[in-house]
Amino acid sequence: MDSEVGVAEAQSLECLPLGECGLLLRWPQEPAPRLSRRIRALGEALDRKPPPGFVEWVPGLRSFAVYFDPTRFSRAAWVETLTSFWENLPENPDLPVRFFEVPVRYGGDDGPDLAEVADRARLDPEHCIALHAGIVYEVLLVGFAPGFPYLAGLPEALAVPRRTTPRLRVAAGSVAIANRLCGIYPRESPGGWSLVGRTDWICFDPGRSPPACFAIGDQVRFHPEKGSR
């Protein structure tokens, strides 16, 4: 799969505008752990050698934004710099990735959509829990809300589309799924993903450095707590 991705990548990396003070790189392939790790490595390379007027970089699922002062370093110069950084990255950058085991209370009030997910998958809820907790996920992206991890690796049997009507209020710590992704809502917020469980795990602490618990490339496994059903 990785070699196919490599071919697609060579075809067209788009450099798109994001206002006069921003630039967006977008890759043509599907979001995937290898691409995300290289996107993180691109950001870290930029941190080591930031051009003048650099403000910050922000990763996407298959994109990368950089914000800057265009009067100090032009868009053309930015495109050249980023392309050169990208081309000089190793295929498999060496990142300090970590492994986390996150306890989850599945089903019931903690995971109000578990039964519906099980119905769709034509499985019983226990089987769904076993599937969800039976694999190691990889962080593709942290964003949307402070510390929210987008986790790749959800088994296809559990893939559900986003809910047609998003909830106005999703409880903090909710473990949720949508399409082939899994995520953890770090704080109470609106949300359109299906809620399968809940954790007390702290995804974000503004007093910590870095403030987000998870980083791109980290490995995560969920561990069902007693009483999950």
Binding site: G19, G60, S63, L141, G143, Y150
Partner: peptide, 10 residues
Amino acid sequence: IDSEPVTFGS
């Protein structure tokens, strides 16, 4: 759309 960075004014 796969989640993508956005900014003030997007």
